[in-house]
Write a protein that binds this DNA or RNA. Structure first.
Lengths: 405, 405
DNA sequence: TTACTTTGTCAATTAAATGAACAATATAAT
DNA sequence: ATTATATTGTTCATTTAATTGACAAAGTAA
């Protein structure tokens, strides 16, 4: 635990309070005595901390828990019904909103498609309207913060957000300032892969195996969110986890990023479609027509169309090469694969990748590896954005609760 | 700052004490008031903390500092003369010892060559004798801990150390237990690349730019130590930073690790020598004979022998490809390159790598990158091993000081 | 029914950081 | 040279947060 500033009484209390709240959130419901044991603090201390939190309304006492022995204990919960956050995910074609309680339960999910050629300004306005509507619509809860996940890495310069890649035509657009101006609650800007990685950690009760984790966003690009000891690795320039631009062939084709043989050129969904299209033009036999849609391609893979399946498998093999490099570099305890490519044919993906990993890793490493497909019920990216917003509130709840109650 | 255990008074003091000691170590010499400002604590608090440390003998008051204004201030130092640690580095052919004060000054450096074919047991015995001799030889100082840096990643299983690669023939040897049995002070086992990375951070006064750092050990293998927020990234299986086994050609030659086209196969010093030897056999003109030594090869590169220089440059270019992947994955703020390949011809290495990086990175990324050659006076690996030993003592000094004074 | 556990709380206590005051002693201004 | 001002380091009373120990309440096991 690295601390760069001394701990006075105020900070001590704040840290202990944040710890207690986070333990409570993970357990969803537990007694004061249990919290004391988890935090290595005494029961009396927890009584004090929880007392304040109950007074503020953030925590509520619920049912009586019947343990194995002794005095009945009182269940505690974070009042997610009353205090909530919104998470936003933006892609090229649509955006999604989720509204969750500070304790993590999902209250509302929305999705809006984005008309083609809609300008950035109009899109932002539309998103702001949707969010405001969601906020104003429900009177029982109070929205404390908003997390917005955007595709691709960005640089934060003088308050403005400058995208490093230009995945959705927002290059240089001051998205953070725009959103912040529109709302009088904190707005958090997050990279999509980071959000998804954080969701895998935050929403999991067994956090030990997920404190060091990589979430691979395998879609139109190949991104990755990295967690080290429960903290997001943003990187010195905000591009950590950009495995899509690690080279798997130093002499391969040139990428727009400057590098050669970037992973993304081999195994993004765009690369897959391109290869299939090319082989169709070359006369390969398949149930697909030359102008197939992504849906049709997915169906073809699932129906085991030879061409589609073969190229999808190839995609998975390339991705596996990237994953091997990720393991040899960052060595995360758990790897979760999500987004479009993972959803197309999860079992094929898993089988193909595992076969490659087994080949390309030392047996001792392969034996200890946790790798899985994202199975979260709701969109990991939007959920992660919400989780990060919730975390920022829960780390210092009184700073926000008392602000303007 | 993630805390997994609550903070009671004892822990509060312990954390503040550790912070004060670390600030003092970084500054080498400063006043109580300066420490108070750095730690965001009050002067009275520092007086208390420093009082204890002076009583214990760990900190001493030195000269009077004349500041710009006001009361004279009293200089404080960690008593590195009295309390010291030993750092050990082991390679295939030699081992080195450094003895440093807890404040970081070097007191003694030793190097021993290892006779070829010496058994592991004999080697360990020999090292233990050397270390014991170093401990007993100086009566003024007390050695508090020993850090041992070994090449390559290892798995820690039931107290035993199992090497993942077998770089020095120690596969399965319980080195940690052996060393710990021989000494009654803490013995720390460290990966060599991690040690070197830690040295770059620990011995630097400007720690802000070095909290997120990668140290590349470019020698017979290609290893890398990673720092995230001042903490070593060991990885879930202890192989984080093994960039030597990231593939730069997914279809390249098979590596002993199972992967194909591993970076190490292209740009380790072994790979360089192999390529040069092959071209000599093919009749390429060079000042080198077919049975050249590493020293002769280095000389040839420095003398700008066309063949040697060309192949060395190629080596650097391959390494650059690996560095680009490292940047796109972990995005460290600073990259330091060290070991054999860096020492051969630092300027050529730097020029060649920078040219490649400029090509293969986005301009915005390249512009912000810090990349340098290791220029530490003493061996970074042994120094880092010592630094990690020192850190373990300084984090909780009273636990060790009072142990058996 | 009794013995034993466990929970949650309260008041008294302990421990650590702080605030305020002070002496000592620098530099800067006059 | 003198005065004003600033800074350091200490002391001690004070504040704050966690702990201790005791206790009532309420459960299980014997």
């Amino acid at each position: 635990m690295s601390v760069t500033s001394g701990i006075n009484h105020a900070k001590q209390l704040k840290l202990n309070r944040a710890l207690v709240i986070d333990s409570l959130r993970r357990q969803q419901c537990c007694s004061r005595a249990e919290l004391a044991r988890m935090a290595n603090l005494k029961r009396a201390t927890i009584t004090n901390i929880i007392g304040e939190l109950i007074d503020s309304g953030l925590v509520v006492e619920t049912e009586i828990l019947n343990g194995t022995k002794g005095h009945r204990s009182i269940g505690l919960r974070i009042n997610g019904h009353r205090y909530q956050v919104i998470g936003v995910m933006v892609t090229r074609t649509s955006y999604s909103l989720v509204r969750i309680g500070l304790s993590g339960e999902v209250y509302e999910v929305q999705s809006q498609s984005i008309p083609p050629h809609l300008g950035v300004d109009e899109l932002i306005l539309d998103m702001e309207r949707s969010i405001k509507h969601m906020i104003e619509e429900n009177h029982e809860s109070r929205i404390m913060a908003i997390g917005v996940a955007v595709p691709g890495p960005y640089l934060q310069r003088e308050g403005e957000v400058v995208f490093v890649t230009n995945r959705i035509g927002w290059d240089g657009f001051p998205i953070s300032a725009r959103f912040q101006d529109a709302f009088d609650i904190p707005v958090l800007l997050v990279n999509d892969a980071n959000a998804a990685a954080y969701a895998q950690y935050w929403f999991s009760s067994e956090d030990d195996t997920r404190r060091n984790l990589a979430y691979i966003v395998a879609g139109q690009g190949i991104g990755c969110g990295l967690l080290f000891d429960g903290e997001l690795v943003q990187g010195a320039m905000g591009i950590a986890g950009e495995i899509g631009h690690t080279s798997i062939d130093y002499n391969g084709p040139k990428c727009e990023c400057g590098n050669r043989g970037c992973l993304e050129l081999y195994c993004s969904s765009l690369a897959l479609e391109k290869r299939v299209r090319q082989r169709l033009q070359e006369g390969a036999s398949s149930c697909l027509g030359e102008n197939f849609s992504t849906q049709e391609l997915t169906a073809a893979i699932r129906a085991q169309d030879p061409l589609a399946l073969e190229e999808y498998r190839k995609n998975c093999e390339y991705l596996a090469v990237g994953i091997v490099s990720l393991i040899n570099q960052f060595d995360p305890g758990t790897i979760v694969i999500g987004d479009q490519l993972a959803q197309m044919a999860p079992k094929v993906l898993m089988d193909t990748i595992c076969r490659q990993l087994k080949d390309r890793l030392r047996p001792a490493i392969w034996a200890e590896l946790h790798i899985e497909i994202d199975t979260m019920e709701h969109n990991s990216i939007a959920m992660g954005a919400a989780a990060m917003a919730a975390r920022s509130i829960l780390q210092d709840p009184f700073g926000y609760l008392n602000a303007e109650l």
